[in-house]
Design a protein around this nucleic acid. Structure first.
Lengths: 333, 333
DNA sequence: TTGTAGGCGTTATCAG
DNA sequence: CTGATAACGCCTACAA
C-alpha cells in the first residue's frame, strides 16, 4: 500500500509549480482557466487530497472546535449540539464532540488537544477544573462555558437562571399544597448547587422547613433516580413531592414509586428538569423545566468563534429564559 | 495575547538545541539528567506545549481514530463507545466520536477528515456510501465497519447475525400463539433488511402468512414507534404482536397501545431490540435482543488498529452471539 | 499568470 | 550525550 499523493506529485504531473497547485486548491482567481483545468484533472486522476496537517500548521489554525461534554448520551445535549453544530458550520468551523465521562483524567486528555493545537478552542459543558485553573487556561487558550457555569471563572458562560428555575419549580409544588418536598440534586455541578439554593429559598418563602434527609445527592441517570426514590420513601416521614435533578432521574423515581403502589400525582408529585423526551415517555408525563437548548448551544458557539476571530478571550455571563412545563406528574388532569 | 512558546523558545531559554528538547519531549534516555532537568524546568516556566500539528506532520500519523455514528444519542452506542474507547486507549490511540445525523453531506465532511489526514482511520457505525464507493475508499484509507454491515463491502465488519436474531424473536412470538405478527423495521440499514428476512423466514417456518401491511418502516426513535403503533392498530385486522426495530421504538409502541386501552402482553405482545436501558424503564419491561455492545466496539477497534499497524486493510466478517432476553412485554409474569 | 524560496513546529539522521 | 540540518506538506510573499 503506497502513500497518498502530495501537492508535489500533482505539480510534477501537471508540469507546474506547487504554488500554482496551491492556488487552485484555494481557488485563487490568479490562475489561468487553462492550467487550472489541467491541474484539476490531475488532482482527480491521482485522487489527491491536501494534507491538512501541513495546511493547518502553516495557517496556524485548524478551524476545529471541541465541545467537551460529560456524556455523549445526555439527552439534554441533543438540542445543544444542534445549536452548536449549525452555528459553527455557518462560520466555517467544524465541531468535535468529546466526552469526559466525568473523569478528570479524560478531561485533561481533551484539554491536551487544545494545548497542542489540534483544536482552536473549546466549549465546555462540564469541567472538573478549579475556577483559577480555568482562568489560567483561558489566558493562553480560547474557552467558553455552556450551561454549567463555574463560579469564579471569567470565561464566557451562557446558562439559565438555575436558582430561579428551581425556585419556581418548588413554589409550584408548594402551591399545590405540598409541605414535605424532597430534592434529588446532582453532585458536583454548579447548577446542582444553585438549584438547591433556589429550592431552599422557595421552601422558606412558602414557610416550609427543609429536613436535611429530604435533600439527596444522585447521579444523572435512571438507576440513581430509582434508588433515591426508594431511599426517600423509606424515611420515617416520607415526602409528598420530589423535585428531581433531571427528567431521567424523575423517570426513575416515578417507576420506583409505582412499584411501591404510590399514586402519582395523587399521593406524590414529581418534577423533573430539562424537558427531554423522557418526560413525555413516562407515564404520567413529567412536569419539568424546559431549557432553551438550541440557543444555549448557539450563543456559546458564537461567543467562542467571536473570541477566536478577535483574538480576545470572551468573558461575561448570559442568562436565557426557561419555562416551567406543567404535566400530569404534579397535577391530576 | 501573544502566541504560545515553541520548541525553539525552549531551546533558546535552556541554552540547548531543539534536538535535545525534542529528546526530552519524547523521553529519550540519551539525555543527561542534568540538562534534562533544566529543560523540564524551562518547559514549565514557559508553559510550553508541543504543537501536535508539527509532530503529526513529521510522523505522518495522528494516532487519532474517528468513530462515525448516525447519532450521538443512540442508546445502544453507549456500550459500543466504551469498548472502542478502552481498546483505543490501550493501544495509545485517541477516539473522536462524530455524528453524521444520517446525512450524506455530513458524512462526506467527516470522510474528508480521513482523506486530509486529520485522523488515521475510521470505524463506521453507519454509512450512506455504496459498497463499491466504500471499497474504493478502503484502498487508500483505513476503514472498518461495526454493527451495521454494508453488503458487498470488503472492509472488516463485526456484527451479530441479525437475520437469525430476528428469526428467534419472531419464533418466540409465534410459540406464544401469536398469528398476526407485525414488524416495525428500520429504513435503510442493512440490519433492517436482514431482520426483515429473518422475520419472514420465521413466519414461514411457523406456517404463518405475512401481510404486507403488517411490515412498516420507521425511524429509530420514540415518536416513530408511537405513530407506527397507532397506524398498525388502525388496520382492519390489527396485529396481536409487534416486533420492533429497537427498544425506544418498542417503548413508543407500548405507550400508544396503553393509550388505546390495550393490555400488554395479554392482548398484544411487544418485542424490542438492543436491550438498552429503555427496555427496563418501560412498563411492562420489554422483551428484547441483547447485543454484545462492548465486544462489538472492541473488536472493530482492534481490527482497525491492527490494520493501521500492519498497513494492510482489514477484511472479513465476524459475528458475535446475541441473547433473547424475555420480559413481561411478551409473557405475563 | 507563474515560479522560487522561506518557513510553520516537529522529529530523525548523522556527525561530533 | 549533544548539535546541525534536512525533511514532513503546505502556503505566501516576492520576483519574474
Amino acid at each position: 500500500m503506497k502513500g497518498n499523493a502530495t501537492i508535489q506529485d500533482v505539480a510534477r504531473a501537471a508540469g507546474v509549480s506547487v504554488a500554482t497547485v496551491s492556488r487552485v486548491l484555494n481557488n485563487s482567481p490568479l490562475v489561468k482557466e487553462n492550467t487550472k483545468a489541467r491541474i484539476v484533472q490531475v488532482i482527480k486522476e491521482l485522487a489527491y487530497e491536501p494534507n491538512y496537517l501541513g495546511r493547518e500548521l502553516r495557517r496556524a489554525e485548524t478551524r476545529r472546535i471541541m465541545v467537551m461534554t460529560p456524556s455523549l448520551v445526555f439527552p439534554i445535549m441533543a438540542g445543544v449540539y444542534k445549536g452548536m453544530q449549525e452555528t459553527a458550520q455557518r462560520h466555517g468551523y467544524h465541531v468535535l464532540v468529546c466526552s469526559t465521562s466525568g473523569r478528570r483524567e479524560k478531561e485533561e486528555e481533551l484539554l491536551h488537544m487544545l494545548k497542542t493545537k489540534i483544536v482552536d478552542g473549546i466549549v465546555m459543558l462540564t469541567s472538573t477544573l478549579e475556577p483559577d485553573e480555568l482562568n489560567q487556561l483561558a489566558k493562553q487558550y480560547r474557552i467558553v462555558q455552556c450551561s454549567e457555569p463555574k463560579l469564579g471563572a471569567e470565561a464566557y458562560c451562557v446558562t439559565i437562571d438555575n436558582e430561579r428555575a428551581a425556585f419556581d419549580a418548588t413554589v409550584h409544588l408548594a402551591n399545590l399544597g405540598h409541605r414535605r418536598i424532597a430534592m434529588l440534586r446532582g453532585k458536583h455541578e454548579t447548577s446542582a448547587m444553585l438549584r438547591e439554593q433556589g429550592f431552599r429559598k422557595a421552601m422558606a418563602h412558602a414557610g416550609l422547613t427543609v429536613e436535611e434527609s429530604m435533600i439527596q445527592t444522585c447521579d444523572y441517570d435512571y438507576e440513581s433516580g430509582y434508588a433515591s426514590a426508594l431511599q426517600l420513601m423509606g424515611e420515617v416521614k416520607p415526602p409528598t413531592a420530589i423535585f428531581c435533578a433531571n427528567d431521567v432521574v424523575a423517570f426513575g423515581c416515578v417507576n420506583a414509586l409505582k412499584e411501591l403502589g404510590i399514586a402519582i400525582p395523587q399521593q406524590l408529585a414529581v418534577v423533573g428538569f430539562d424537558d427531554t423526551i423522557e418526560s413525555t415517555m413516562c407515564t404520567p408525563n413529567i412536569t419539568t423545566v424546559r431549557q432553551p437548548t438550541y440557543d444555549l448551544g448557539r450563543l456559546a458557539m458564537e461567543a467562542l468563534i467571536g473570541s477566536l476571530e478577535s483574538g480576545v478571550q470572551a468573558t461575561g455571563q448570559q442568562q436565557l429564559e426557561y419555562e416551567l412545563v406543567i404535566r400530569s406528574s404534579t397535577i391530576h388532569p
